[in-house]
Amino acid sequence: MEAPDIFSVLQAKFGEQIVDFLEEGTLNPTVVVKPEAVLKVCEFLSQNEKLQLDSLMNLAGHDQDGESDLSVIYHFYSTIHDHYITVKTFTPREEPSVVSIANLYRTADWHEREAYDMYGIHFEGHPDLKRILLEEDWEGYPLRKDYVPAEFYRGMRIEKVK
């Protein structure tokens, strides 16, 4: 199946939960869905017989410009049908929250923790949502575009004085 076909299948199934389909100017054809519908859509993607997107290749958080909404991007691949689809969802910068798919795809477990660590996106229903790379007492989310590093961390100077 090609990406536009997958999009029309999803649109027929979920209607208004599917917001948009991006094809021009993107590296991968992307279906944009509402953040609360992510789990339902992913369940459908993995279980529908014609789709069977059984492999989550990547899950990434994203901050476009430091002002607009944060987003989460899912890259799916079907090892059975050999086709791809990218799913994207937007969530507000203040209190960003997306439904977790960690119980559906085990790959998503650590990837969601990384997105939480770097962007502060809260994944509802994640079994163990805590920072994966930085220390627990770290303040802020460093890959956000508006992040400003602290002066000290546990008494160690972060920015060297010139």
Binding site: L134, P142, Y147, M156, I158, K160
Partner: peptide, 20 residues
């Protein structure tokens, strides 16, 4: 020695192990 390539934008890197 000094943080190396992370000297300027390395928010997570210690700028020289001689600090500790």
């Amino acid at each position: 020695n000094s943080g190396g390539p992370y000297w300027q934008h390395g928010y997570h890197v210690l700028k020289g192990v001689d600090q500790i």
